[in-house]
Simulated scan of single mutants.
Amino acid sequence: MTKRIGIGVVGAGAIGLRGALTHLSQPDAQERVKLAAICDPVPGRAKAAAEKFGVDKAYESYEELLADPAVEIVTICTPIGLHYEQGLQALEAGKHIHFNKTMTTKVSEATDLIEKAAARNLQIVASPGMMLHPVNRRMRRLLLDGSLGQLAWAITGTSAGSGTYHLNEEYRTGNDILTTVNPEWYYKKPGGGPMYDVSVYALHNLTGILGPAKRITAMSGIGIPEHKFRDQTIINEMDDSTTMLLDFGNSFHVIVYTTIAGTITDWLPNVYGTSGAIIGAKFGDVALRNPADRQPHVNDLHINLDESHVYEDIMQLVDLVADGKPTIVTAEHARHVIDIIESGYRAAATGQTQELTTTFQPLTIDELDVAVQI
């Protein structure tokens, strides 16, 4: 049997419980990984999570988890504004890292982590790995094989995360220590707001299918100034209504919206070309999503559990560390999406179009292992 990789789960909030522990405690995952440790600063929360999911050690401090020799990789499931500093600490401790979205809030932070990981021969996988979904790979194939003709324009967006979604999750509406997790950070600087939390999915879809963008302009503001959670009033500091216009070159422009109402299906883009269009995961009458579609590690044990994509990204890191198997879920792609978000906010604040400074290598047609039956 292959050696099991020891995982440390950083944070016992909604994503740590739902996206990491629920999946990693399943029997098939346990053949590959060992839940070595979990940490959370709320007294008793890590212990309760460890008891529920069979984690070996529970700590109240991140430093204790990093000092645990059984922990080989960490999945960082904490508020996004903490990711950069916690990533630095993990690399200094010699740990490989899976970042839940978004990896950082700034391009400079992402670059620093990428460079430090390379210097230490450590691996980073940064969610969300949207191009692992077959539907996105089929969309990419249609673009590359010329089925769309010359690209004209596209649109994608979301309203999820802008309103009350995070106030009503199952891990926030109960009565015990694991179901009373406070969502205040979602509405606070520097890592809150729906751009970093939810639009990151739409942007990974978009750029994974179309490739890297070149320039951006935007308008942005706060539509809902405060939220209620139990008996607490949360003042919203982060913009929840943002519309961006991205330039991909060759006069091909894309609208990306993050707003308090209305959304396009599953954060997938509608892409219009001179020879055809992808609309609602269909190319004409051809469905681009199949009922049997799965990400590589998402079998019947995982498909009906929430956040199976998080589990998939963690297992991409496990395969990379254990077997040296390359992954398309790269920190460079995540950095480019961070560039779009950071530059979009800057464009909105200044009224000036911003040049994007990062890029990544999108999938080539030879790397696409799914066919489109037209």
Rank of each mutant, 00 (worst) to 15 (best):
E307N: 12
L301R: 11
D313V: 04
A292K: 09
M315L: 14
P296K: 03
K282Q: 14
V286S: 00
D306S: 12
E312W: 02
A281E: 15
A281D: 13
V298K: 04
A281M: 15
D293P: 11
V298Q: 05
L301W: 10
N304W: 09
L305C: 01
L288H: 01
F283Q: 02
N290V: 00
Q295C: 08
Q295F: 06
D300F: 07
A292M: 03
A292E: 15
H302G: 05
E307F: 14
Q295A: 13
N304F: 09
H302D: 06
R294F: 01
G284A: 09
D313R: 03
A287G: 01
D293T: 10
A281H: 08
S308C: 12
D300S: 11
P296M: 03
R289K: 14
P296Y: 05
E307A: 14
F283S: 03
V298I: 10
N290Y: 12
E307S: 12
R294T: 05
D293W: 08
E307R: 10
F283A: 02
V286F: 04
N299R: 11
D306K: 11
G284S: 04
E312R: 05
P296L: 05
F283M: 05
E312C: 03
N290P: 00
D313I: 06
D293Y: 13
N299I: 09
L301Q: 14
H302S: 10
P291Y: 06
I314E: 13
D285F: 04
F283E: 04
D293A: 08
P291E: 09
H309N: 12
H309D: 13
E312P: 01
I303Q: 07
V310S: 08
E307M: 15
N304E: 11
F283I: 07
R289Y: 10
K282M: 14
L301C: 05
R294A: 01
R289E: 13
H309Q: 12
V298Y: 04
V286I: 14
H302V: 09
Y311F: 15
D313P: 04
H297A: 10
F283C: 05
V286Y: 05
P296R: 02
A281N: 12
D313C: 04
